[in-house]
C-alpha cells in the first residue's frame, strides 16, 4: 500500500517477490483492494507525519477496506509508519511516540522473536534472534500498564529489542499482534533484510514466507 509520503513501499514489494509471492502495488486512494490476499503497510512518512504519525493515512479510502479485511482474518503487516497507522486505526492497541532520546535512530538492530505463531512469524522459532534495520524518529511503543500486561499474558508481543532500548519502547516491545494473530505491527524493517547485497542479513525474509505458509501452505 502506498500512501502520499510512503518510503518503503518498493522494498516491501521486492520482499514479497523474493519470498515467492506476487506483489501488487496498491494506492491509498482506491477503496478496492484488487484481489490481494494480504496487505503490507510500509514505512515512511504518510502525509508528512502531520497531526500524528499515521493519523491521517488511517482515514484513507483503502484503509477502511484494510480494516474490514483485517477483522475478517486477512493478514496485515504494518512496518514502521505502517505500525503507526495500525495503532491509529485501533487494529492494534497502544501508540508510538517520539523516541525518548529525541534523536532519529538508524542502525542494524538485534531482535528476539517472541511469538512464532502469527501469520507473519510462523517461519521463525520462538526465541530466535534476528538482525534487521531499524530507522525511526517516533518509534517509542507506549500503552497503559493493563494493556501491556494483557499483551504479555496473551503472548501478543511478537518481537522485542535486544541490547539497549533504541527508542524508549515500553518493555522493549518492537512488535505486537492482534488477538487473532493476522495483524502484526513492527517498528523495525524486515523488508530491508531480504538479500545479502542490500541488507545486514536475510533474517527479514521469513516474515514474508510466513504469510505464504499461512495462506497457501508453501513451505519456506
Amino acid at each position: 500500500m502506498t500512501f502520499p509520503g510512503s518510503l518503503d513501499d518498493r522494498d516491501a514489494l521486492r520482499a514479497v517477490r523474493l519470498a515467492g509471492a506476487e506483489p501488487v502495488p496498491l494506492w491509498h486512494g482506491e477503496k478496492w483492494l484488487s484481489d490481494v490476499v494480504a496487505v503490507v503497510l510500509p514505512g515512511g512518512f504518510s502525509y508528512g507525519d502531520y497531526l500524528r504519525a499515521g493519523a491521517i493515512a488511517r482515514f484513507s479510502p483503502a484503509m477502511q477496506s484494510v480494516i474490514d479485511g483485517a477483522k475478517n482474518g486477512m493478514p496485515v503487516l504494518g512496518i514502521c509508519n505502517g505500525f503507526q497507522v495500525l495503532c491509529e486505526a485501533h487494529l492494534l492497541p497502544g501508540a508510538l511516540i517520539r523516541n525518548d532520546h529525541r534523536k532519529f535512530v538508524c542502525r542494524d538492530q538485534r531482535l528476539r522473536i517472541e511469538n512464532a505463531e502469527t501469520a507473519w512469524t510462523n517461519q521463525y522459532e520462538a526465541g530466535q534472534e534476528i538482525v534487521v534495520p531499524l530507522k525511526n524518529g517516533e518509534g517509542g511503543y507506549v500503552a497503559d500498564p493493563a494493556t501491556l500486561d494483557a499483551l504479555e499474558a496473551d503472548g501478543r508481543v511478537v518481537a522485542r529489542y535486544l541490547g539497549d532500548n533504541p527508542n524508549g519502547s515500553y518493555r522493549a516491545i518492537a512488535g505486537i499482534t492482534n488477538e487473532a494473530g493476522n495483524v502484526v505491527g513492527l517498528m523495525p524493517h524486515p523488508e530491508h533484510a531480504v538479500e545479502e547485497l542490500t541488507g545486514p542479513s536475510t533474517d527479514g525474509l521469513a516474515f514474508f514466507t510466513s504469510v505464504l505458509q499461512k495462506l497457501v501452505g508453501i513451505p519456506a
Partner: peptide, 13 residues
C-alpha cells in the same frame, strides 16, 4: 496534550 503518564520528549527538550 499528552496524558500525564506519557513521556513528552519535546517538552523535556
Amino acid at each position: 496534550v499528552m496524558k500525564p503518564e506519557i513521556l513528552d520528549p519535546q517538552g523535556q527538550a
